[in-house]
Computed example of a mutant assay.
Amino acid sequence: MTALFGARELQIISVPAQGLPQRTTLGVEIAAGKVSDYVVQVAQSLHPEHLAGQRALHLGSAAALSSDGRAADLLAPFVEIQGDRFIYDNPSAPASAKDGSVIADLFVIFETPDGSRYEVHPDASSTPTQVFVQVPQSVAIGTAKVYVQRPQYLSNNGAWDQLVGKESNRVQLSYDARYIFGGLSGNQLLVIDSQSKYLAARIPIGGDYPAPRSVAISPDNTRAYATLRYESAVAVIDTVALQQLDADGNLANGVSNIELLPGARPFWIAVSKNGNKAYVSDEVAGRIYVLDIDPSSGSYNQLVRTLDVGPAPSGLRGMAINASGTRLFVAAPEKMLFGSAQRRRPGLRDRRGRRQRDLR
């Protein structure tokens, strides 16, 4: 199920394995001045022994805890999942086979379009009907399906040695481009709420002095890509959870960016109409970096190609893609060298002097 942000009415029809379809009518609205405050409720009737029933998903912000148990300085995005029978005592099982009877046994699973699964234990404050979990920085929450998994032992001729995972129904969030993103010269991205016109968040970007500059949004509005002038890289932002994403999906090596070539000085970024590629210009070289930004791709969030554009004695600047998505136009300023302009190669410019590349 996909439900959009904003004030609107939704009708959800669930078809159980037995019985008549159930219709749920609900209203969805984000209160003014709130950041990513979202609730979806679904009528659900499930047997406790068969499945952990998930009937609501709520995304909001809370104070994250540091390793010593104290509240951290920054707010972190949390998912609150409301449901029934997330834990099950399994009364027939012996004491050694009671997995799934306490909150610590549960997993909240974020499943991404490429099939990857990120498993996170719920926060200790969770209850049998409310599960809280911090959104991992390895997942763009708007692209993921979220569900709860409960372990449970089944009797195998009285042996109780068959461990299975009981899964709730899956819920996926979508986003309707509510926020406006802009880079600062230091290490932050500003987020403006387009409805309230207020500053909604400041998202910190890792690095000594990354200096985010140009920002482009994916067509599905789930991710923002920001060029980092002094990091030779591009940062990825979750536009729903409002946090920086780990580009390689492996938090063991820290929150990483999309690395360009050594010495690159990224200036502008443009995203293809189909959302599969992003193009980054270099302000000191006649080079365009092509990034794979398709969440279902095996090379997701990686540099996959470079395009050389010349002559470009002063590097490249702004870029734009035409309406059909077949041509990329890039500004390539020239300067006078020894009293004369650099000689132009025919066929590389349009009538206004802009470079162009065929994307077909």
Rank of each mutant, 00 (worst) to 15 (best):
R150V: 06
A144I: 02
A93V: 05
L184G: 12
D248R: 11
A235M: 06
V39H: 04
S61L: 15
A264Y: 03
Q44L: 09
S92I: 01
V236M: 04
N274I: 02
A331E: 09
A7C: 02
Q342E: 05
I192V: 14
S174Q: 15
D84A: 13
G298L: 15
P313E: 11
N169F: 13
S194P: 14
E111W: 01
G186H: 13
A211I: 00
I109R: 09
L154P: 00
N276E: 05
E49M: 03
L260Q: 08
T326W: 03
L184E: 11
H50E: 07
G33F: 00
P204C: 12
Y198R: 10
G6P: 13
L348T: 10
T306G: 09
Y179M: 03
G100Q: 02
L74A: 10
R354F: 11
G310L: 09
L251M: 10
V131H: 03
Q342I: 01
K166C: 07
S281L: 04
S297G: 07
D176L: 07
A32L: 07
A52E: 08
G347A: 12
R351A: 12
P219F: 13
D308F: 02
L242S: 05
A270P: 02
Y209C: 05
V191H: 14
L46W: 10
G347Q: 08
D193K: 06
G83I: 04
R55Y: 08
I205A: 08
G298C: 13
V290Q: 04
P122Q: 07
A52M: 04
R352S: 10
G69K: 04
G83W: 02
G33R: 07
V171K: 11
G183Y: 05
Q172A: 15
Q41C: 05
Q18K: 13
G353V: 03
E29C: 01
F329G: 07
Q243Y: 06
T227W: 08
Q11F: 07
G318S: 15
A31S: 11
T222I: 04
A341L: 15
P48E: 09
A17E: 13
S155F: 04
T326N: 09
P333N: 05
H47S: 08
I13Y: 10
